[in-house]
C-alpha cells in the first residue's frame, strides 16, 4: 500500500530529478529563445563537462565545487566552439538545418568522448552520509546539495537576464530580433554570451547529474528527451517555464509510479506534455505562440 509518507517521498524524488532536468531544459530554452533552434547536442555538452570535472578532481584532488569550475570552462568552451564553427554559419537558414547539425555534433562529441575515455562508468568521490529522516520522509543530503546547486545556477541566470545590461539585451533579442537590431543591439555579442550561459548551465547540470548517478558517455544524451519535454511543457523560450516544466515532469513521473509502474512513467510524462500542448499550445509560460 502506498501511504501518504510514501507519496511525500516520491514527490521529493520527483522534485530533485525535476530540478536536475530543469538545467538542460534551461540551456535548451535559452538557445531556442535566442538562436531559435532545438539544440540536440545539449546533453553531450553536459557529458563533456562532467568528464572535465572528473579529470580536474582526479588530477588535483580538489572538492567537487572547485572541480565544477573546470567543468564550466569545458562546457563554455565546447558551446562557443560549435557556435563559432557551425551555428553562426547556419543562423540565416531554416531552424531544422541547425537542428540536424546539432544531432551531428551530438554524435561527434559522444563518439570522441567514448574514444578517449572509454565506455566504463566513472564516479565522483563523494562522502556518503545517511539520510535525514523526518517521520519516514527521507531527505538525502546529496539530493539536497544537488537541488541547491541547481537552484543557485538558475538564480544566477535569472539575475544575469534581469539585472545586467547584456541580460536585458538578450531578452530584447529573444522578444523581437528585428527590433533589437534596429535599436543597436549587437547580436553577435549577445549570441556569444548566450552560448557561454548555455555551456555553464550544461556544466552545472552535467556535474550534478554525474554526482547523483554515474558518469558515462551517454550521460547527457539520455537526458535529452526529458529536457526537451520540460522545455516544451514550460513554453519555449521561457526561463521560469523551463524550471516549472522540469519540476512538474519530474514530480508527475515519480508520483505515477504507484499507478503505472516504473516503465510507463516515462510514457506518462509524454502524455502530460501532449495534454498541456493540446489545451495550451504555447506551453505553461510560453509567450511566443507554438501553434502555427
Amino acid at each position: 500500500m502506498t501511504t501518504a509518507v510514501d507519496f511525500v517521498n516520491l514527490a521529493l524524488n520527483g522534485l530533485v530529478e525535476g530540478l536536475l532536468i530543469a538545467l538542460p531544459a534551461l540551456a535548451l530554452t535559452l538557445v531556442m529563445g535566442i538562436a531559435r533552434f532545438p539544440n540536440a547536442a545539449t546533453g553531450d555538452y553536459m557529458t563533456v563537462s562532467a568528464y572535465a570535472a572528473l579529470g580536474v578532481q582526479k588530477a588535483l584532488g580538489v572538492a567537487i565545487a572547485v572541480a565544477a569550475i573546470g567543468a564550466a570552462a569545458a562546457g563554455i568552451a565546447v558551446a562557443l566552439f560549435f557556435h563559432l564553427w557551425v551555428f553562426r554559419a547556419l543562423a540565416r537558414r531554416r531552424p531544422v538545418a541547425s537542428l540536424v547539425a546539432s544531432i551531428g555534433i551530438a554524435f561527434l562529441v559522444r563518439a570522441l568522448l567514448t574514444l578517449f575515455v572509454g565506455q566504463e562508468q566513472q564516479t565522483f568521490q563523494v562522502a556518503l552520509v545517511r539520510a535525514w529522516n523526518f517521520g519516514g520522509v527521507r531527505l538525502l543530503p546529496t539530493d539536497l546539495y544537488a537541488a541547491l546547486g541547481a537552484i543557485v545556477a538558475m538564480a544566477a541566470l535569472f539575475a544575469l537576464l534581469h539585472a545586467t545590461p547584456i541580460g536585458r539585451q538578450m531578452r530584447a533579442v529573444a522578444d523581437n530580433p528585428d527590433l533589437a537590431r534596429a535599436s543597436g543591439i549587437r547580436a553577435g555579442r549577445v549570441m556569444l554570451v548566450m552560448w557561454a550561459c548555455t555551456g555553464a548551465l550544461c556544466a552545472v547540470g552535467g556535474v550534478l547529474m554525474g554526482v547523483k548517478a554515474v558518469v558515462m558517455p551517454e550521460l547527457g544524451w539520455e537526458l535529452l528527451i526529458p529536457a526537451f519535454a520540460a522545455m516544451i511543457l514550460g513554453g519555449i523560450g521561457s526561463v521560469p517555464g523551463a524550471v516549472a516544466g522540469g519540476v512538474l515532469l519530474g514530480m508527475v513521473q515519480e508520483l505515477s509510479i504507484p499507478f503505472v509502474g516504473p516503465s510507463y512513467k516515462i510514457a506518462v510524462t509524454f502524455g502530460v506534455m501532449l495534454a498541456v500542448l493540446l489545451l495550451r499550445p504555447r506551453g505553461l509560460f510560453g509567450s511566443a505562440p507554438a501553434a502555427r
Binding site: V96, I236, G271, L277, A291
Partner: peptide
Amino acid sequence: LSLRLSDDYLAVVTLGFSEA
C-alpha cells in the same frame, strides 16, 4: 497534432511519441 503545433514542438512531440 501537427496542424496545431509549430516545427520545434512537432519535432519533440514525435520524438516523445516514438519512445512511448
